[in-house]
């Protein structure tokens, strides 16, 4: 019973996601998936090979984490559901959010390239 309900629920979730989430947020989600997948690969690799160039591992892994966090921030600001009058983000316009995201990524990658060795 539980098994079928989980399958039902996930099916419903997917349908709901397809129908209600706007297209640009779906693109962001795809990008997030890719970033999380890269981070996961590196984590498995470090467990297999060892931590020897530790700075390089930290740089590679943290660049994924950083990009993920920044992009989640961007997604939250662009989500129409968050644009309620009660939400203080409603006044932030999307072009400003995107520019901020781009600038933060620039800073992040300068740090990453410096740290990678």
């Amino acid at each position: 019973m539980i098994g079928t309900s989980i399958v039902e629920a996930s099916k419903q979730l997917l349908v709901h996601y397809k129908n209600s989430v706007p297209y640009h947020l779906k693109v962001i989600d795809a990008f997030l998936l890719y970033v999380a997948f890269t981070a996961a690969i590196q984590f498995v690799y470090v467990l297999l090979v060892g931590t020897f160039p530790f700075n390089a591992f930290l740089a590679g892994f943290f660049s994924c984490i950083g990009v993920f966090v920044l992009t989640v921030g961007l997604r939250m600001q662009l989500n129409p559901q968050n644009q309620s009058p009660a939400n203080r983000w409603q006044r932030i316009n999307p072009s400003r959010a995107f520019t901020e995201w781009l600038f933060c990524n620039l800073v992040l990658h300068i740090a990453v390239i410096n740290f990678i060795g």
Partner: peptide, 9 residues
């Protein structure tokens, strides 16, 4: 050994 990290970054 660090090439995967470079690639990821």
């Amino acid at each position: 050994q660090a090439y995967p990290y470079y690639a990821a970054a």
